[in-house]
Design a protein around this nucleic acid. Sequence first.
DNA 1: GAATAAATGAGAATTATTCTCATTTTTTAT
DNA 2: ATAAAAAATGAGAATAATTCTCATTTATTC
Lengths: 144, 144
Amino acid sequence: MKYSKQILLDHKVSITNPRILVIEALLENNNPLTVDELQIKLKKKVAKSTLYRVLNDLKKINILNEFTNPENATVVELLLEDDSHHHHLFCSDCGEIIDIQMGDEFEKKLSKEIKRIEKKFNFSIEDHRLELFGKCTDLCENCS
Amino acid sequence: MKYSKQILLDHKVSITNPRILVIEALLENNNPLTVDELQIKLKKKVAKSTLYRVLNDLKKINILNEFTNPENATVVELLLEDDSHHHHLFCSDCGEIIDIQMGDEFEKKLSKEIKRIEKKFNFSIEDHRLELFGKCTDLCENCS
DNA sequence: GAATAAATGAGAATTATTCTCATTTTTTAT
DNA sequence: ATAAAAAATGAGAATAATTCTCATTTATTC
């Protein structure tokens, strides 16, 4: 069975063509996509209103991560069980977004700092996000 | 002279009432504000179009930091020379956004990791942002 | 396979932000 | 301090992103 169908089955939501197409499009890319890019990839196959609805459906079953790029455009990526914790690197020249992983030692240090912040502000912290901003130098075909 | 006027003078842009009002409103709060909150604070004193224009003006002279909250609403804060490097903590109950500082050791470790990422992806990284998400427990009047 | 429930497509409605342009305010040069 | 020139403002129109509506289609249940 197609992986995308399995994902929908696993989350007990009905299996429809638009949902399969959106998941496939997101699976094809290793990195996050803006909604615009996604719309272009699915042009004529999924209605705009349906695309937004499907994205909301995927959010509801907790397999979609949504954030914004430095221009405040909405960006999405699938977050599946086997995905490991990662952060994002943004290129201000070509707009590319790259998944990055920080070293274990760094994440441990971050956890400690988070505990300190929790106490200081009497917060219960559930998640965090680290974003790095810069320019890809000479390797990117878009920035050449 | 009012601090807000001084800021405008220092950055060689003309001193106008809407600009002063926006800067004062942002200075009043220690923490970032959504554009909506800012609009309410300035209700009837600054036109909506002017507010957005002034925010863009402040961005141009690099004293405004703009980002989004977890609901993707635009958030702004003044970033003045004497402000030190900080990050943000978001409460998903009351929407409050709090400035936080991470320990020196943590920031040093982060710098090292950033150098590693720069080499790995052939990037030149210019900035970073860390966001923590959680709930304020019992101290916040909005979350009581 | 028929009945029921859920999802879709197309476009209208809504919201956030930018743009336009006539008027007002600020700056510059005397 | 004042007049001319330049820049900024307010009000609302225009645009863009996202959500909503509802008649039709597709998926699920029995």
